[in-house]
């Protein structure tokens, strides 16, 4: 039965949010931000580099993209692993061809399993975001704080030990958090996380260890969601990327800077039959006069500079 009554004089039925993590704020009522050089759209491309363990027990919940069939699910495992061997190199070539810069959200298991892949990513001199341990290691409310601190520390130390020295942001596997994750992340000195996708600009997020910035990492404009979950075809994926830009560009001209977050998975768009669609999207975006190609850290820094956030 109910852990709380259905009709209490609920102290959380009040002005603003039903928690104290962040303030209620309408995007359209904030002081507008202006990106550098008069740009209006900060294009933040995020490429997820992930390890999907075959012995995933999906507890306490399944993360997106994880095993589907009974053990040993060689089919799903190798389909995902294709991204780390073939797909990612195609995606890198596509990005290079059109001058697209990206953040690389890397599971720490990559550092152990495929150190050369991590070195290839680091050689690009773009930013690495810590993406948790692997896609069978969710952060969740049923783990102790000590367990979770150990998991975050191991994740960061593996990535840093393999050469990713300057990590400023965090993306939990499947955006999973416990009630203490924000404190743990702020404690380690991370500047931003990507797990609370409710906005199109950064915002200030309170923790007992000080503030951290919540970045608008899209759960929506995401190749896995559009192509694998929704089963939209490649042409529709490209339409959605283009429509996102077209709409935002018009709005941002009147209302101030926006972030356009595009989330990619090499095991999805790095497939031989899909890479042309990704190239078409990159070709469309690469020469837009109002786009600022930015890393999450760039956006975070610039937003803080302008808003004092």
């Amino acid at each position: 039965m109910s852990s709380k009554p259905q009709f209490p004089d609920d102290p959380m039925r009040r002005y603003g949010m039903d928690h104290d993590r962040y303030d209620w704020s309408l995007l359209q009522k904030r002081t507008p931000v202006a990106w550098p050089d008069g740009k209006r759209i900060a294009l933040w491309v995020n490429i997820a580099v992930e390890v999907f363990p075959m012995n995933d027990d999906s507890k306490p919940f399944k993360l997106p993209g994880s095993m589907v069939k009974p053990y040993p699910d060689l089919q799903t495992y190798t389909w995902r692993d294709y991204g780390n061997r073939v797909g990612i190199y195609r995606v890198m070539r596509a990005a290079d061809k059109f001058g697209i810069k990206a953040d690389w959200s890397v599971n720490a298991a990559i550092a152990e399993k495929y150190p050369q892949l991590l070195r290839d990513i680091l050689a690009r001199d773009e930013d690495v975001i810590a993406h948790g341990m692997d896609m069978a290691s969710p952060h969740h409310g049923e783990m102790s704080e000590a367990q979770e601190r150990a998991l975050v520390e191991k994740t960061l130390s593996l990535l840093k030990g393999a050469g990713a020295k300057n990590i400023r942001g965090w993306l939990s596997p499947g955006k999973s958090q416990s009630a203490r994750t924000p404190e743990i992340l702020a404690d380690t000195g991370l500047e931003f996380f990507c797990d609370w996708p409710n906005d199109e600009l950064p915002y200030r997020f309170r923790t007992e260890a000080g503030e951290i910035t919540s970045m608008p990492h899209s759960s929506d404009l995401n190749d896995r969601r559009i192509i694998v979950d929704f089963r939209h075809d490649e042409a529709s994926f490209v339409d959605q990327v283009k429509d996102q830009y077209t709409y935002l560009s018009r709005e941002a001209a009147d209302e101030g800077g926006r972030v356009m977050s595009l989330t990619l998975h090499p095991w999805v768009t790095g497939q031989s039959h899909r890479i042309a669609a990704l190239e078409e999207a990159f070709a469309f975006l690469c020469d837009k006069a109002d786009i600022w190609l930015a890393s999450g850290a760039d956006i975070c820094t610039e937003w803080k500079r302008q808003t004092g956030g």
Partner: peptide
Amino acid sequence: PYPDNEAYCVRDYGNR
């Protein structure tokens, strides 16, 4: 389990 921050935020986006 609490907090389902992603599912919550996906909906909070509608208001913000």
